[in-house]
């Protein structure tokens, strides 16, 4: 059975292909990404892919959460909602899963890596939802305060 470090190393070897594929299909992933230049899109996806590798190697939840929090905050400025963030990050994961299946063919690591990447997607969605739920609670409190006549 391969170790998390093996998984990360395999992903590293696929990163250039994944990057090229993601840049190529960015128009199908999100409006905000469809509008950016190829270089910007490359930089964006590269950061996501590198973080995915690091997460697959460490499964450090706090790191992942911190990454998601920054990602949501930064992407909000590009007009992406939390739903958009979820869809884009899951789509990135799906693209990598497809590549793992197609490029690595019958290698024994394939199924394990696909499960690992499916878990990354699951954790990502959970992480974003946690953050959205926290934000929702804060906004509710602010709304109630405003209705009572206080400052937001």
């Amino acid at each position: 059975m391969a170790t998390p470090a093996d998984h990360a190393a395999t992903l590293e070897s696929l990163r250039p292909v994944a990057l090229a594929r993601l840049v190529e299909i960015r128009g199908s992933l999100d409006h905000a990404l469809a509008r950016v230049t190829e270089a910007e899109a490359r930089e964006h996806f590269d950061a996501v892919l590198r973080h995915t590798q690091a997460y697959v190697a460490t499964w450090d939840w706090r790191l992942h959460r911190s990454f998601l929090q920054s990602y949501i905050a930064l992407r909000a400025g590009d007009g992406m909602s939390s739903d958009d963030v979820i869809h884009v990050l899951v789509a990135v994961g799906d693209v990598v899963i497809d590549l793992v299946r197609n490029q690595l063919g019958g290698k024994p690591i394939v199924h394990e890596l696909v499960v690992a990447l499916a878990k990354v997607n699951a954790h990502t969605v959970r992480g974003v939802i946690d953050l959205v739920a926290e934000e929702l609670e804060r906004r509710r409190a602010q709304r109630d305060q405003l209705l009572r006549g206080g400052a937001p």
């Binding site: 706090r62 790191l63 959460r65 911190s66 929090q69 920054s70 949501i72 905050a73 930064l74 909000a76 934000e135």
Partner: peptide, 12 residues
Amino acid sequence: RLRDALHEQAQT
């Protein structure tokens, strides 16, 4: 949101 992210980043 950005300040929260900054805070989290600083800790990480």
